[in-house]
Design a binder for these strands. Structure first.
Lengths: 140, 140
DNA sequence: ATGGCTTCTTGTATTAAATACAAAGTTAAA
DNA sequence: TTTAACTTTGTATTTAATACAAGAAGCCAT
């Protein structure tokens, strides 16, 4: 949960050069209020009550646009699902193999300088850690 | 290219508790001689000349078995393709966004101790770096 | 406002990766 | 040799994602 006044949402989109249409605002709002790194399907199910006519294609279009403009980060941590993170600051992710939840990790010391050979140019770094979360360990 | 005598291949499978069937040996051999982190489709195309009756399902079955037994690592570096790495020693990967090639990176200093909260249990760490490789930079 | 242009959204069709599953084939063991 | 267990195959199915054309909505100038 967060400050999601429509005016703020509009400005976020405008700053990235994205026209603030109704659906785009709703999807952005959803991402900011549901920071669980949702899949397209989760967003669809979350919004279709409020917007019954919403099409999945619109969500795909919108997220691809957001990703292009650097407004969301694309996570391929799951084998068969693309997830979207509204927080584009560099950080790592932990996926629990029991409950499937994806957690943000901010305390990873990662030094990629000198990681790639001479002449290679880095544009993005993705660090995925998998295992069992504390919740699921307690449960079992 | 590498030492891929059939006897060695048999032993590798046996050590992991995998019955060394004809197809499994062929797929293992392919992985050891083509260390490009191939997709299922690449393996299929690479082997179907030699084994015309080979089914893709067999490759899926075999790779899932290999992964279960810890003989290959599963890479989800691409958005829409699963790749397989016969080298299961911990190392990072670089994917060139121009030519699509996946390179091994052995010089990354990565310290994940203290990265996850109390009570979390780590089973795997995947580090993906994306950008443009030296080859493609020269080309353009 | 009205018409016309651009942009956005929708829905259907399509592609492609991956799995399910039952039948056929093969191997190993009794 | 017969039986049981395992492996492979092929078809059908599922599902994520894209393509694309038609429709809807917003925007601008006259």
């Amino acid at each position: 949960m967060e400050n999601t006044r429509v005016e703020d949402l509009r400005n976020i989109l405008k700053e990235k050069g994205i026209q603030p249409s109704y659906h785009r605002l709703k999807i952005l709002k959803y991402l900011m209020e549901n920071k669980v790194h949702p899949t397209v399907d989760m967003i669809y199910r979350g919004l279709s009550a409020e917007i019954p006519t919403l099409s999945k294609t619109t969500i795909y279009n919108t997220l691809n646009l957001f990703a292009e403009k650097g407004l969301v980060a694309v996570l391929t941590i799951g084998e068969r699902e693309t997830r979207y993170d509204i927080n584009v600051q560099p950080h790592a992710h932990f996926k629990c193999e029991s409950c499937g939840r994806v957690y943000d990790l901010w305390d990873v010391k990662l030094d990629v300088s000198g990681a790639v050979p001479e002449g290679f140019e880095i544009s993005r770094v993705e660090l995925y850690i998998k295992g069992i979360c504390a919740n699921c360990r307690k449960g079992s």
